[in-house]
């Protein structure tokens, strides 16, 4: 095993779980998320040693792959019949709302690009320019998606959704 491959293995071992979560929040399906992560990291393997910031590259690649997975036509999607449980959103009749489940449900109702912007900005902590670069879209689009995404989440959750002051300040400043 070469040094390059050892470094790559170490990187994957350290980042895989975070990348899975990122992909999951973007696409809303764990299996699709894993497919996206696998494809993105396979591309990174080919370019390993030539990428300046592997973490940023992997993050961008995973988000874009996750978005692509949601756009993939149904006839090109792999149909899983194994241990994957359907991510069906069932109405929660229990008054004690589990925030995590509720947020996941709310996220799935937000358009995927809005969702990707929110994840990159408020989970990964990217700035507007970084998010725009990662998604290859104008910064104005990132701002618009952020605003619409937050509005949608607030409307769906019906709650006062606060955001990190640090992130918000960066959002406002940019």
């Amino acid at each position: 095993m070469s040094d390059h491959e050892a470094e790559f293995r170490e990187f994957v071992g350290a980042q895989m779980e975070a990348l899975r979560g990122l992909a999951y929040l973007t696409c809303g399906d764990w299996q699709v998320a894993e497919d996206a992560v696998l494809g993105a990291l396979a591309r990174l393997y080919v370019k390993w040693g030539r990428v300046e910031n592997p973490q940023a590259y992997a993050r961008t690649a995973v988000v874009r792959a996750a978005i692509d997975e949601t756009r993939r036509p149904w006839w090109r999607r792999e149909q899983s019949h194994g241990d994957a449980l359907p991510e069906v959103v069932a109405p929660d009749e229990i008054l004690t709302i589990d925030d995590r489940v509720q947020l996941r449900q709310a996220l799935l109702q937000v358009p995927v690009k809005h969702r990707a912007v929110l994840v990159l900005r408020f989970l990964e902590g990217l700035s507007v320019p970084q998010t725009a670069a990662a998604l290859r879209c104008p910064e104005g689009t990132v701002k618009a998606y952020t605003s619409r995404g937050l509005d949608a989440l607030r409307r769906i959750l019906g709650a006062d959704l606060s955001i990190d002051e640090r992130v918000e300040a960066r959002h406002e400043a940019v």
Binding site: R20, L25, F122, L123
Partner: peptide, 11 residues
């Protein structure tokens, strides 16, 4: 409820 915390929790 902070969005970042919720996102962390969601995954």
């Amino acid at each position: 409820m902070k969005l970042s915390e919720l996102l962390l929790a969601a995954r």
